[in-house]
């Protein structure tokens, strides 16, 4: 399976993402610059964390108009897995690929530590290798991860089972309903504030993030074998 790791000016988790895929997952990965106009050669699209365009105006606001984003929209419409982590999540909400928005953390601080995440929905292509209710230790590093949406959106997120991860006991940013990660209605676009790509090896503090990437590959293999 071949992943595109998108690189915007100011991305800084692109290397972690690339090595998680290449070295720990054992799949193909390529860095793809933000002005690329074709993503058709990739099976999965990864939007890494960082501070695209310096977080100017709003986090992810300027990146949403990069050339590559119209390709990301096409990939999402085609049903390819699209994963946005941290700043990648912010870009996906700004681009309208995911509902809601991310506000400044409630305590106004940049939070950088490992948190407990709960797998609320394991019936997605991103979480099938986890058990429902499983608790994961995954690092966070963000100043604006306070997920918010209106009551109507929240009700539809719940009704469609789109809330995938929540903070288990200790919500670091004040997000509504302790939300840490959501998928779109179709289930092929996931945005999350925590960094699974930083939890793929014992040497860096744990491997709880690896199963997320394994889930993506598993689903891709299954769908491509059955179509062959």
């Amino acid at each position: 399976m071949k992943f595109a790791v998108l690189v915007f000016p100011g991305s800084n988790c692109d290397l972690d993402m690339y090595h998680a895929i290449k070295d720990e997952l054992g799949e193909e990965a390529e860095y793809v610059w933000h002005d690329t106009k074709d993503l058709s050669g990739y099976d999965g699209i990864l939007l890494p964390g960082g501070f695209s365009y310096g977080d100017y105006l709003r986090c992810g606001a300027i990146a949403q108009f990069s050339n590559v984003m119209s390709e990301v929209k096409k990939a999402a419409e085609a049903g390819k897995p699209v994963l946005g982590i941290c700043n990648g999540f912010q870009i996906l909400t700004e681009a309208g690929l995911l509902p809601g928005a991310l506000l400044r953390n409630k305590n106004l601080k940049f939070m950088c530590r490992t948190v407990e995440l709960k797998v609320v929905n394991n019936d997605t292509l991103f979480t099938s290798e986890y058990a429902k209710g499983e608790i994961l230790n995954i690092p966070i590093a963000h100043g604006e991860g306070n997920y918010t949406c209106d009551a109507e959106t929240l009700a539809s997120l719940k009704a469609n089972n789109q809330i995938v991860f929540t903070y288990n006991s200790d919500n670091p940013n004040g997000s509504v309903e302790d939300i840490a990660g959501i998928v779109n209605e179709r289930g092929n676009v996931l945005g999350m504030m925590p960094h699974p790509e930083r939890a793929v090896h014992e040497l860096i503090g744990g491997t709880d993030g690896l199963a997320l990437f394994k889930s993506i590959v598993k689903q891709w293999r299954e769908s491509h074998v059955s179509h062959a």
């Binding site: 105006l57 300027i62 700004e94 509902p99 809601g100 928005a101 918010t148 209106d150």
Partner: peptide, 8 residues
């Protein structure tokens, strides 16, 4: 489109 995020 750009200058504000009308969600928030």
């Amino acid at each position: 489109k750009l200058l504000t995020n009308t969600v928030i």
